[in-house]
Amino acid sequence: MKIGGSYELALPPARAYTVLQDPSILARCMPGCDHLNRIGETAEGHVAYEMKMKMAISSVQGLFAGTVKLADPNEPTSFRLIVEGSGKVGFMKGEGVLTFVANGTGTDVRYEGEVNVGGVIAGVGQRLLDVTAKHIIKKFFGKVAAAIGEME
């Protein structure tokens, strides 16, 4: 499933870029994220973190364990974010490029990528996959904006 969109953050691109690469911010803002532990660099040179995530939307819940990887850094204009996780309800892999475009005093963070899911969530969740992905992304950026608000 293709995903794409943009979100406005009240920071200049260079700052927005560093904030979104900051593991403590990512851990705080990824919905249901328990923690991110740096596990080092992958063979391809990606910075990799181990993560645990408890997704909960209404009564639907899933525990995912996996990795978050930051790749193709091109400071301050773009980088690639790869999130992979698996759990009893299935597995998911989201990969996308985040692009930072100045917009007045703030930044338009554009994202474009693909989400693949497998297992039960893929087999029975089709109807709600797209809205759920959007919901999670919206929530993520909402939290990032709030975190920025606190920092400023």
Binding site: N116, V117, G119, A122, G123, V124, Q126, R127
Partner: peptide, 14 residues
């Protein structure tokens, strides 16, 4: 089946 081989019409709701 999607490109990765997941049966995405896997329930009677779909």
């Amino acid at each position: 089946y999607d490109d990765t081989g997941q049966l995405i019409t896997g329930e009677l709701m779909d």
